[in-house]
């Protein structure tokens, strides 16, 4: 693997609250190589979005980062807000779920794309705007020259998300973080936007972190997958391998809980219960209370992330589960 663009080592994120220290992310590690897409997948509260914000230096006030986050080999978790601002939009960029609230309603689409080019590439306003129109055409906004002079409210949801992508990729960042980039969009538009991100990634060699709750999106667009549960990495593997031989009970349950287009199973796999309270996380494995495979040890000791197959890591005392199948058979 080429030198990673992004490397997280034992990253912890914490916030002081009235009820004690909240740790939405508790010791996660993964790396993203150039030109590859790493999906971070999990349900609400698993810590995937706050991880994205931490990488971008956008944590809400009071948030603290422990461990190490390296961008192209350089530590960023200790940057000053000023230094971090210099990286955002240039070396690293982000696309959010809701394009309406992340675009500025007072500026035209073209001006917003041009801004990054003026700041990071020091283009003069005219050249920056021309280049912005080019970018808008590249993300296949029809009639880009006219659209560039329109305001966000005059654009459809799909088009706004294209503007966001044009903005994010204008300066050819090393790293693009896409946080549920298509969740607010209709399925036909979602397909267009995800294909666009793939295409841009191939062209620019940008490393992509795709944050999503949709395993179908992961299967179609990710090279590597990090499955998060309650602030920890449950499983980490190349995408093909994760879908072929998922190891963590949470991953297995999640795959069975999503309804399939083929119909098929009369009943969906049901992961009973809900995620633990992160102000008072359980001592052992955080999934133990909902896990049909859990034994005493799971409730007492937190499982480390260990390699079960080459490149395939899982945090589960019971892995590999296949021995249980042999017993059952």
């Amino acid at each position: 693997m080429a030198d990673p663009v992004l490397e997280l080592r034992d990253v912890t994120i914490s916030f002081p609250t009235d009820r004690g220290l909240l740790r939405p992310v508790d010791g996660i590690s993964f790396a993203v190589a150039p030109g590859r897409t790493t999906a971070v997948v999990g349900e609400s509260g698993c810590g995937k979005s706050v991880t994205a914000l931490a990488i971008m230096g956008l944590l809400p006030s009071g948030g603290r980062i422990g461990g190490s986050i390296r961008l192209a080999g350089r530590e960023v978790s200790t940057l000053t807000p000023e230094e971090w601002r210099g990286k955002r939009g240039g070396e690293m960029a982000m696309v959010f779920q809701e394009p309406m609230t992340s675009l500025n309603p007072a500026f035209t689409a073209g001006e917003q794309v041009a801004e990054a080019l003026r700041i990071h590439q020091r283009l003069d306003p005219k050249a920056a705007f021309d280049r912005a129109v080019e970018m808008l055409a590249r993300v296949r906004i029809p009639d880009a020259a006219r659209r560039a002079r329109q305001y966000p409210h005059q654009l459809s949801g799909g088009m706004r998300q294209r503007v966001m992508i044009a903005m994010a990729l204008a300066c050819r960042p090393r790293l693009l973080i896409a946080d549920e980039p298509t969740t607010a969009l209709d399925v036909t538009v979602q397909a267009q936007i995800l294909a666009l991100i793939d295409e841009m990634k191939r062209e620019t060699g940008t490393a992509v972190v795709l944050i999503t709750h949709d395993l179908g999106v992961v299967a179609d667009h990710a090279d590597d997958v990090v499955v998060m549960y309650a602030g920890r990495v449950a499983e980490r593997a190349p995408a093909e391998q994760l879908f072929a031989t998922p190891q963590h009970p949470y991953t297995i349950g999640l795959l069975g809980a999503a309804p399939k287009l083929e119909g098929g199973a009369a009943r969906l796999a049901s992961i009973e219960g809900t995620v633990p309270d992160l102000l008072h996380p359980p001592a052992g494995c955080r999934f133990a209370a909902r896990c049909p495979f859990a034994i005493e040890k799971c409730r007492e000791q937190s499982p480390p992330l260990g390699e079960v197959l080459p490149g395939h890591n899982v945090a589960c005392w019971r892995a590999p589960l296949d021995t249980l199948l042999e017993v059952a058979a």
Binding site: T245, P246, P249, G256, R267, A269, S270, E272, L325
Partner: peptide, 12 residues
């Protein structure tokens, strides 16, 4: 393999 493992997630 996956189907058999998913069968452990019974529905209470």
């Amino acid at each position: 393999r996956l189907k058999r493992l998913q069968a452990f997630f019974s529905d209470q």
